[in-house]
Structures are given as structure tokens and as C-alpha cells.
């Protein structure tokens, strides 16, 4: 039970009397004056409010009308001119700066130092990944990538906090529920042509995404791009079949558990480096022959984790911005 008093009980308390006195209801005012005071604040019905809104709108229109406001006309013209000049100057500055860059492939460039040499010369030997970029971001700099995955996770949570609608306070709930459980009302739904083609294409897109993720250490690609492809496939499925069918396999709970397990696995895979003095290259896991799918130690697992997080993030962003709820 709530501790809130009923109106009758409340009217007997001292607090009620105090606030009543503050509002001035108790003070003595002669009858005629009271009536005048009542007249001071006219009771507005809807039509007068509408009129006043119209007047306000007309005043705003008058201010923003170019014929009556010479200054605005001048400003609008100058705005375009100044914007164009600003862009030209910016482009000229940037192009001028490019002229000072050292030519491509020069020997004495500042970024041609021992770090790059090490990556290129010993990359395959130490990480076992044919694709040097993947070997770099998921083995030499694995903690950076862990931070990036966490940034995606935090971004999704922020969007969830900002955009999620409260289920009880959703507007016109009964009206919305008729239209396939609060899908956007006026959008075309159940397009048979689109559904037929999506039935073919979504599995192909998914398989292609999985191929890109699993081949991350052999060919360009990897967790981020493969995850983006899988997310795009999920978005296509959602657009073709509607929210109701997509919610059968992907809800907020799915998102939570997939992100949790992927990030935890990543963290556990790289946690051993705390015990080897931040030297996380030597993991005692056989690296295998470079070029095979099952090679290069932990990179494959880390790629899968990153891909899952990215795919879930893309899909969740899309759903939140379209509907505001799972």
C-alpha cells in the first residue's frame, strides 16, 4: 500500500492549510474585487488558443518573410556566398598542405620506422596470420580492438537509454497494436515480391558474411566488415518480413546475451597477458601452418567475437532508430 493519504485526510493536515494560505485562497477579498480578479485571467477555450497560436505563427512568418525583411534577404544571400568562400578556402588550404607531404614510398618518411619493419618481417612468424593487418589489430594490438568492441557496446547501450520507449506509456497503444504489433503504421508491408527475393538473398548474404569473418586472417576483411555484412542481411530480413517475424529470433535478450558472451570470451582470451608481463604474443597455442583456416592461434576466435558484436550493434541501431523498441 502506498503511504499517500486520501484527499479527505489530506485536507485536514496543516500542510494543506499552509499551501492553501500560500495560494491565497483563505485571505479575505471583497466580493466585487474577487470577481474582477476572476475577469483578469480569462478562461480560454480551444478556439481562442488556436487564434493566438495563429497570431504567433503569423508573426513568425512575417519575421522570416524575405519581402518585408530586407536584412534577412541580405543575410540569406550572404550566407551562401560566405559558405561557398569558406569551402573554397578550406579546400585550398588542404590541397596546399598535401603538397608538403613526402612522396609515397620514400625511404626517410617518419612512419617508416622499426615498428613497421617488425610487423612486416616477423608478422607471419609471430602471429601466424597471412593477412598482416589482422595479425596487427588482433594480436599485436589486441587490447585496442577490445576497446573498440566495448565502444560499440557502450554506444548501443546509450542509444537504448535515449531512444527506448516505455511500454506502458506508448502513445495510442490500442491503435498501434492492430498494425502488426506497433510496426510503423503507414509503411508498406508484406510485399510478396520483396519477401520472395529476400528468402533467396538473406541466406547468401549471411554465408558471405560468415565467409568474410572466418577468412579474416587469410584475406582482407575480418570481424568488423563481416559483422557489418551480417547486420545488413538482418536489416534486409527485417524490412521484408516485418518486426513481428524478426522478433522471433532477435530480441533485446538475444542482444544482451550475445554481446555479453562475445565480450567476455574476448576478455578471457587475452587475460593471460596480465600474467606474462604484458607480453601477450607467446600464448603456447600452436600457430599452425600459415594459410590454413585453423591457424594463427586465437585470432579466429577473436574475429568471431568482434563480428558478433558488430552485427548485433548494427541491427540494434537500426531497430532503435526505426521503432524505439524491440
Amino acid at each position: 500500500m502506498s503511504r499517500r493519504k486520501t484527499d479527505e485526510e489530506y485536507s485536514k493536515t496543516k500542510a494543506y492549510k499552509f499551501f492553501k494560505w500560500l495560494r491565497g485562497e483563505n485571505s479575505y477579498i471583497p466580493e466585487e474585487t474577487r470577481m474582477d480578479m476572476g475577469l483578469l485571467i480569462p478562461i480560454e477555450d480551444d478556439s481562442t488558443i488556436k487564434e493566438r497560436m495563429n497570431e504567433k505563427q503569423m508573426a513568425i512568418d512575417k519575421v522570416y518573410d524575405e519581402d518585408s525583411n530586407k536584412l534577412l534577404k541580405f543575410f540569406n544571400k550572404m550566407y551562401r556566398v560566405v559558405a561557398a568562400m569558406f569551402l573554397v578556402i578550406l579546400a585550398a588550404l588542404l590541397i596546399y598542405n598535401v603538397a608538403f607531404l613526402p612522396p609515397v614510398g620514400e625511404r626517410d618518411k617518419p612512419d617508416n620506422n622499426e615498428v613497421t619493419e617488425r610487423y612486416i618481417e616477423k608478422g607471419i612468424e609471430e602471429t601466424g596470420a597471412v593477412n598482416i593487418v589482422t595479425g596487427m589489430i588482433l594480436d599485436y594490438r589486441a587490447f585496442d580492438t577490445f576497446g573498440e568492441s566495448n565502444v560499440l557496446f557502450v554506444a548501443t547501450i546509450t542509444v537504448l537509454i535515449l531512444l527506448r520507449l516505455n511500454k506502458d506509456k506508448r502513445p495510442d497503444r490500442d491503435e498501434l497494436e492492430d498494425h502488426e504489433s506497433s510496426d510503423r503504421i503507414y509503411e508498406p508491408k508484406n510485399d510478396v515480391i520483396l519477401q520472395t527475393v529476400a528468402g533467396f538473398l538473406v541466406p547468401i548474404i549471411m554465408i558471405f558474411g560468415i565467409y568474410v569473418i572466418l577468412n579474416g586472417h587469410l584475406s582482407p576483411g575480418g570481424g568488423f566488415s563481416g559483422g557489418a555484412i551480417i547486420g545488413a542481411g538482418l536489416i534486409l530480413y527485417l524490412n521484408a518480413f516485418g518486426f513481428e517475424k524478426a522478433e522471433r529470433f532477435f530480441t533485446e535478450k538475444t542482444y544482451k546475451w550475445i554481446s555479453f558472451f562475445a565480450l567476455t570470451t574476448y576478455c578471457l582470451c587475452k587475460a593471460y597477458s596480465f600474467f606474462c608481463g604484458a607480453n601477450h604474443l607467446d600464448s603456447h597455442i600452436p600457430l599452425g601452418t600459415p594459410g590454413a583456416i585453423l591457424s594463427s592461434g586465437l585470432i579466429l576466435i577473436l574475429n568471431i567475437c568482434v563480428g558478433l558484436v558488430v552485427a548485433c550493434t548494427m541491427y540494434t541501431f537500426y531497430v532503435m532508430f526505426r521503432k524505439g523498441d524491440f
Binding site: R184, Y186, E187, P188, L236, A240, R322
Partner: peptide, 10 residues
């Protein structure tokens, strides 16, 4: 194309 047409019609 799919998303733009859908959102714009809506």
C-alpha cells in the same frame, strides 16, 4: 533502395 523507399512512403 529497400530502406529508403519504405521509410519515404511511410
Amino acid at each position: 533502395v529497400v530502406v529508403i523507399t519504405k521509410v519515404y512512403i511511410g
